[in-house]
């Protein structure tokens, strides 16, 4: 897909909370006897953090990098599976905090781990059609796994924000994008339920691998590009193994996904996962580099994007905190503190 007018990313920002729960802590408490843990550790939000506060910080960095008047941003779209309110938008809180209100679109997106890239696709459309000069798309989550469940090792907090604008102002231009969805119930959460259900091994081949490969191949075909044409690639990262496997299946080398592969250190940040992989990749990119980004959201679908980095990257990058600065700001906590911070203790 390609909009009428060329568009690109003019600003980006990442956020990861300070606390880390080592996977060994989950294993210690639950003794699941797993030989290989899916991540090294995962990020845990502080008691005063939620998707709205984290989105605000990432968006502030994006705005700082973009250096545009917030009043010209025509949409604030936050993708998450952990919006603080069931009814009441996260996006209006973000829009207010950034001074984007009142003449703007604002809405929350929901599509499991691809809610953020769905917002990004829509932003490309909105800006590319000329309906708005700029649009802000955010993927951010504070994901929760049932205590003792396999997801508890990985369900983490973090994400990234992107301001989409005209290609001539961009630090990375969208060369094209593609979306691919089917009705595949690999992972879901019913209303009023605290924790999701997942299809265990069903989340692999018919879900993650099928959708990512289909979207990536279709986009590369549309662009006439091959894996080796990209400097970097980012695939949704629910654990360390999956993105490495899918990269290999598509013909990408390990070095291409290395800068964006954060899951081992911060866990699976759900709607933020592929987008924070992209922000870490942009932190490493040079002008002219091409980047392939492919998300995956259960339910299920993938959004694929091809980007070409411009000369603007270096100066913009220096205007705000790097993804790595959040990743390396870490305070390990034990399972007890984790239970308290994530409100798994019922006090009454």
């Amino acid at each position: 897909m390609k909009p009428v007018k060329d568009v690109g990313i003019i600003g980006y920002g990442a956020y990861v909370p300070r606390y880390r729960l080592p996977a060994s802590e989950v294993a210690r408490v639950w003794k699941n006897g797993e030989d290989v843990l899916p991540v090294h550790e995962k990020s845990v939000p502080g008691l005063d953090e939620d998707t709205a506060t984290m989105a605000i910080e990432a968006a502030r960095s994006a705005l700082q990098r973009a250096g545009v008047d917030p009043q010209l941003i025509g949409a604030v779209w936050v993708g998450s599976e952990s919006h603080p309110y069931a009814v009441k938008p996260t996006s209006t809180i973000v829009a207010e905090a950034l001074g984007i209100v009142p003449n703007t679109l604002a809405g929350d997106w929901e599509f499991a781990c691809k809610a953020g890239t769905e917002a990004l696709q829509a932003s490309i459309g909105l800006v590319g059609s000329g309906m708005a000069r700029y649009a802000l798309a955010i993927g951010m989550d504070t994901a929760q796994g049932r205590p003792g469940d396999a997801l508890e090792y990985t369900a983490a907090a973090g994400g990234a924000a992107y301001i989409v604008g005209p290609a001539e102002e961009a630090l990375a231009v969208f060369e094209g994008s593609f979306s691919y969805v089917t009705d595949t119930p690999d992972f879901f959460r019913r209303p009023y339920q605290h924790y999701p259900q997942h299809g265990s091994r069903f989340t692999g081949e018919p879900a993650y691998f099928k959708h990512i490969q289909a979207a990536a191949k279709a986009l590369m075909e549309e662009l006439g590009a091959r894996p080796e044409d990209f400097t970097y690639a980012v695939f949704h990262q629910p654990n360390i193994k999956f993105p490495q496997q899918v990269a290999k299946m598509l013909g990408f080398r390990p070095e291409q996904i290395k800068p964006g592969l954060l899951v081992g250190e911060i866990g699976n940040t759900y709607a933020g996962s592929s987008l924070i992989g992209l922000s870490a990749t942009l932190d490493a990119a040079k002008p002219g580099d091409r980047i392939l980004l492919v998300s995956f959201g259960s339910g299920a679908g993938s959004d694929a994007f091809a980007l070409r980095v411009t000369e603007a990257i270096e100066e913009r990058r220096a205007r705000a905190y790097l993804t790595r600065e959040y990743v390396s700001r870490r305070k390990p906590i034990d399972y007890g503190l984790y239970v308290r911070y994530r409100r798994k203790l019922h006090m009454h």
Partner: peptide, 10 residues
């Protein structure tokens, strides 16, 4: 101590 503002849940 140098500090910076963040928006959080009060």
């Amino acid at each position: 101590m140098p500090v910076e503002m963040v928006t959080r849940k009060l």
